[in-house]
Design a protein around this nucleic acid. Sequence first.
DNA 1: GTTAGGG
DNA 2: CCCTAAC
Length: 517
Amino acid sequence: MVSKNSIYYGKFDGFQSPMAPKAPRSLRRSSHRKSSEGSKICAFDLLASIADKLLQESESSTSSTSPQKDQITLPKESPHSDNDSGLEHVSDVKTNVKLEPCEAKNVDKMEGDLCNFNLFNSIAEIQTEGVNVKKQSGDFTASDPMESCVNTCVLTKSYTSLNLPSKRVNVKMGIRDDTKMRAFREKSHARYRRIRKMMAYRYQKVTLKKNYQLPNTTISETKPNENREKIYSKDRCQTEAPSKRRKLFHEKSGNGDSHVKFSIKSFKIPELYIEIPETATVGSLKRTVMEAVSAILGGELHVGIFLKGKKVKDNDRTLQQTGISRDSDLKSLGFTLEPNLFQAIIPSPLEKEAPFQDKNHEMIATSAANSSLDYHVDENQEFVPLQTELLKEGMSLVQVTKKCEASQRRIRRPFSVSEVEALVEAVETLGTGRWRDIKLRAFDDANHRTYVDLKDKWKTLVHTAGISPQQRRGEPVPQGLLDRVQAAHSYWSQHQRKHQTKPVQILAGSSVESVNL
DNA sequence: GTTAGGG
DNA sequence: CCCTAAC
């Protein structure tokens, strides 16, 4: 039964989570680096329990049947019908992630066409309900890997990893220079939006109708004129500055005194697929799960609204006009999380003839898989091109997603001691305020270090030098360097823009060994 | 395009 | 690391 090549496919049927506010940007990016980011650690712990359970259960598992191909139609609104979806090779793991309910402003933008959620920072508790892992022996069974991927991808709403055979999830992401990608994306925004629209149309028919309905959506009324702002819940997180968005609640309400109160107990996040070799360590499995979850939660999700089984598409109509009022039957109202950005759309077999590719850049447009047409295209919404090559390289969607995310916000790259050294020396020589020169002088070949980065680093260095060693974090910077930082900082604070190219030998005495011009 | 500073 | 006013 145990095959050398066997691979575990763990399918997480979904994560349930209550509403949560948008995370600070600093928490929105996934990373497996050593870091002090609290949410990460938290999530790690949570997911560890899943991973442990998953692995544990897999010991006594049975093999599964082969996947059926081309079965890409799922019953509408049937979250648990995966066994009919050609995903039998994937085992069923139901996992609930309970999130700590958090404060009133859980909905970022009620008035708009979407709500941005980030559940990541609110994870408080995780539960493994019925873990049942089946082991898949041998190779991926579908004839055409890519085709399988397509189907799998589509079936799972393009969510997580592509089940590329013999490609393992590479936990360690390579560092890449995403500056150009960013620039390119920004400049091509409009064009890709067009592509995106086309894609959305093209893939309409192969896109899943399956949606993920909230298990527990309760609606109740509020008393008129009471807590206009606290529509969603009472303040559970005390300290939160008033948001600009909150205004939106008032301006367009126009519902008179009739308020509808929505208490969304939890959202369900679509499946999560994990593929990992048998020989992988438990730790790597944990990291992989972590990454997959982070990749999903790190991106922004759309929220769909269903009323009486029909999707509410018109974002401009009032609740009243839509039929969502205190007097109507609100039990038929449901909210769903939908995949949004950064998800790859791979040409399906149907579309192979005419793939929407930009020849020049060999990119394929991404699209909000099943929801593009249902939403207004938000002008502010990022549209991230996805390099087909990445997929062909065998990257999992998790990784691709990460890459795309990296295009949004550059990955964190802590300065090494030698970099700090170089920076300090350059500043000693050139002073602060000539960051471009400093860049050219000391970091000309370091493409990923912009002069703004250097400026920022200097800022933190000055700060670091001013605090006690106990309060410092990250790779420790030699005290000698910090002394030089402090010396140079105080020196250039006084000698503003004078004798800029003059070595700073004079400053603060001792630790300046030599300054080469 | 760079700087400077808050987020 | 991001954003952006100001230059």
